[in-house]
Design a protein around this nucleic acid. Structure first.
Length: 506
DNA sequence: GACGGAACTTAGAAGTGCGTCT
DNA sequence: AGACGCACTTCTAAGTTCCGTC
């Protein structure tokens, strides 16, 4: 309960005992700095790159970047024009002047031999003997042991991501304008180390220096660097099993529990605000209703052209909703269709209260499809309002709260104390699925889906044929079984797994 | 209030490892 | 032994929120 991953037993989270408001996160922090991924190893001489059908020996830096593309050859990314263009632009920047003279068109580049080299290498790794694999495992464990932990206030804690991110081609989600750009190698000279003054300060790799060493105990990160794609910061932080992260997580759920006590009041408030004289208040009230009822994310503004075009509640545009006075026997239906976080599609038809519907008509009046639905609202305005309603309340708390209470209610409704363990597990999975639906958690169909579906189909056909020969009546149950299997597979793959919203247990 | 940067959480994709079936 | 399916872990992109500055 206390968040310590090991050590003495305690029954209350420490932050309840000594609430520090000064922002101090630790008194002692000691670690070895990030583990730097190995440097590039040049290709063997017999593995060649071809330009315009002729072999071409590349400089080391150019070759390395070529391998990034070659490795991705059977990935869908490399079929996309934006990916190809971004890659080729960035690749050319790193070429020697001579290479730039020769390599002018991507479609004349042949990476297939390099691709095959890496495929073979992978297979070879898989085919290693048990002993050889064991040896590799031990080497990895040694690195984990040395770099994977830190000392925080006297306790050894696991680090979440102790390795620098390897160089490669940027894999943005959805229609990302920067996909394929070169993600550069992180060097010690890029890295800021954060630790305590009196600790053993990590040594940079031989011949290198850190960018900076600082002693900031008001933040939780151990190291940071600026990545070159979005020019944003990346951090090395603790594992969720750590006390620091655990307590933060606990606090998050405590805020959500606090919301439970006032949510009725807040709902009454925003329903009243649907009829406010102020446009700003109405927009705020309708947006909050969506966030509460549909578990939408807040929806910050984003810089255009820097990322994929995705939205959340406050950044919804007129084009993302359709209004139906009547649809499928329901009144006042709002049809949502937009791309949310990670470019996951949100599609939903919801019957709403009449004042909401009327307000939406008003908000959309005289606007173009590309205009903001809530033009007088931003996440900042919304969160400032929420802060006044309850200490610590922000838009995301509604997602936590609604996800958690959905899980709790579903568990209560679906389970009986007498159920078997298997029955309870089934109910648990179904409750989780309800949360996943609420939060629109999805994953794309795995690459192996088509194949496994095919395998199922062959199995079914074979069994059917065999059965038909001996017992024609079996057919009925077989058909049923087939349908059941298919449904189960679809259901599981479409909506398995929900996230941190409702699950407080790691 | 706008803006930009910093810090931190959330999330899906990809990789890994392991048990089972053939 | 190899293929397959599944659960679990790792990786890192993509969000939210907060804070300082003008």
């Amino acid at each position: 309960l206390c968040g310590w991953s090991h050590g003495s037993v305690c029954f209350y989270p420490r932050w309840e005992e000594e609430k520090t408001n000064d922002g101090v996160k630790w008194k002692q922090l000691e670690h070895k700095g990030p583990y730097f991924v190995p440097l590039y190893e040049p290709l063997p001489d017999d593995v060649q790159f071809y330009y315009d059908g002729k072999p071409l020996k590349l400089s080391l830096a150019t070759e390395e970047i070529a391998t990034f593309y070659a490795k991705m050859l059977d990935h869908e990314y490399t079929t996309k024009e934006i990916f190809q263009n971004n890659f080729f632009n960035d690749w050319r920047k790193e070429m020697t002047p001579q290479e730039q003279e020769v390599i002018k068109q991507l479609d004349k580049c042949d990476f297939r031999e390099i691709h095959k080299y890496f495929v073979d290498k992978n297979e070879a790794r898989k085919a290693l003997s048990k002993e050889e694999k064991q040896k590799l495992k031990e080497e990895a464990d040694k690195i984990q042991e040395e770099y994977g932990y830190c000392i925080l206030d006297g306790h050894r804690e696991k680090i979440g991501n102790f390795k620098t991110e390897p160089p490669g081609l940027f894999r943005g989600r959805g229609d990302h304008p920067k996909m394929g750009m070169l993600k550069k190698r992180i060097m010690p000279e890029d890295v800021i180390i954060n630790c305590s003054k009196d600790s053993k300060i990590p040594e940079p790799p031989v011949g290198h220096k850190w960018k900076e060493v600082r002693f900031d105990n008001t933040v939780t990160w151990l190291a940071s660097w600026t990545e070159n794609i979005q020019n944003s910061l990346k951090y090395i932080m603790l594992n969720p099993s750590s006390k620091l992260k655990g307590e933060k997580d606990w606090q998050k759920f405590e805020v959500a529990r606090k919301l439970k006590d006032v949510v009725h009041k807040i709902r009454a408030q925003y329903q009243a605000d649907w009829k406010s004289k102020e446009m700003k208040k109405r927009q705020r009230a309708v947006a909050l209703y969506f966030i509460d009822k549909l578990a939408l994310r807040a929806g910050n503004e984003k810089e255009e052209g820097e990322t994929a075009d995705t939205v959340g509640c406050c950044s919804l545009r007129v084009e993302h909703i359709k209004l139906h006075s009547e649809l499928d026997g329901q009144e006042h239906v709002v049809e949502f269709d937009f791309l949310g976080k990670d470019s996951i599609r949100y599609y939903n038809k919801v019957s709403v209260e009449k004042p909401v519907f009327k307000n939406l008509q008003l908000f959309m009046k005289n606007k173009d499809p590309g205009d903001d639905l809530f033009d007088r609202l931003s996440t900042v305005i919304l969160n400032k309002h929420l802060q006044k309603l309850m200490n610590g309340l922000t838009a995301k708390v509604f997602r936590t709260y609604n996800a958690s209470i959905t899980l709790q209610e579903q568990l209560k409704a679906l389970t009986n104390p007498e159920d078997s363990v298997a029955g309870k597990l089934l109910s648990y999975n179904r409750a989780n699925r309800a949360v996943a639906i609420l939060c629109n958690h999805q994953r794309s169909t795995p690459k192996t889906f088509e194949k496994s579906m095919q395998n199922l189909q062959t199995k079914v056909t074979q069994t059917k044929r065999r059965a038909l020969r001996f017992a024609p009546t079996l057919l009925i149950s077989l058909e049923w079984e087939k349908r059941r299997m298919k449904n189960a597979v679809l259901e599981e793959t479409a909506l398995s797994k929900h996230g941190k919203e409702s699950c407080g247990i790691e």
